[in-house]
Design a binder for these strands. Structure first.
Length: 273
DNA sequence: AGAACATCCTGCTAGC
DNA sequence: TGCTAGCAGGATGTTC
């Protein structure tokens, strides 16, 4: 599942390999992927546009175009952006949109579960009005984090996954962050003393930074890949996620799995308090 | 306010 | 072996 590190990896690939190119033609298949606007409107809005730069907040990805508008991408559960050298006659299964570039390559949007989205947004990107600061680039200080957590009464796991508080953290990295911070998923912000808050702040930064360096997590069932179809290696450094029954890397107690905030959650009962 | 649940969807898998 | 029911999850919306 693409979260902040996976989206950032794709953004960096796009920045390096498609910035400067021009979209010469576009095609949309099906009605699910481009649903904020009519496919015809989308196609005419991107056709002929030169790609100027890339940006990201949380799991939202944007490519600035030469008319000031942004090509917006959200991968949601299973979306993939793939740069393929071939033309669209050899599109793989679940390819819902193809942008042909003047470089001869094509940008394919592949998404089996069709939760992902492509759309054209304006320069101000109103879709981001309800999205909080980026959990990595805009994390700020420990004091900033305390302020952002505020007086919420729900468990830390739910708060970390709330994109209006901090954006980019999903089910995988929230578990990893709370393990590294040695905090239970159900702890509330007001229960955190100064050292605990500092650990949480550091864990957010550490876990996301390392996952970006490892080019994201590719778990066997929900295969995330980069712009060239290559898997990441961050799953190798996961301490708790999808490790139910396996020994904790710190204390060797078995990792437990619970349902929390509507999601499967993994933690060490001994290390996280 | 917050939690629990349904919704969108397909691929995988546990269990017959 | 082959089928199917259940599960998985990001964002959003509804209900309690």
């Amino acid at each position: 599942v693409p979260e902040l590190p996976e989206v950032e990896t794709v953004r960096r690939d796009l920045q390096e390999h498609i910035v400067g190119a021009t979209i010469v033609s576009a095609a949309v298949h099906g009605h699910r992927t481009v649903r904020r606007q009519k496919p015809d409107q989308f196609i005419s809005a991107v056709s002929g546009r030169k790609l100027i730069s890339t940006s990201r907040r949380g799991k939202y990805l944007f490519i600035e175009m030469d008319d000031g508008n942004r090509l917006a991408v959200h991968l949601r559960m299973s979306g993939q952006l793939l740069l393929r050298s071939n033309h669209h006659f050899d599109r793989i299964k679940h390819t819902h949109a193809i942008l042909d570039l003047d470089s001869g390559a094509s940008l394919h949007f592949v998404d089996p579960r069709t939760f992902g989205e492509l759309w054209v947004s304006t320069a101000s990107i109103p879709e981001l009005d309800h999205v909080g600061p980026d959990a990595l680039d805009e994390l700020g200080t420990v004091i900033d984090l305390r302020r952002r957590l505020g007086t919420r009464r729900s468990g830390l796991k739910a708060i970390l996954m709330n994109q209006a508080v901090l954006s980019g953290i999903g089910n995988i990295y929230s578990d990893e962050i709370l393990f590294q911070a040695r905090l239970r998923l159900t702890r509330t912000p007001e229960s955190l003393n100064r050292p605990a808050l500092a650990r949480l702040h550091q864990a957010i930064n550490n876990v996301l930074t390392e996952a970006v360096e490892r080019r994201g997590s590719s778990l066997s069932d929900e295969q995330y890949v980069d712009l060239f179809g290559k898997v990441g290696t961050a799953q190798a450094s996961h301490c708790v996620y999808a490790r139910e029954g396996s020994p904790c890397v710190v204390c060797e107690r078995k990792i437990e799995r619970v349902k929390f905030a509507g999601r499967s959650s993994f933690y060490c009962r001994n290390c996280q308090r």
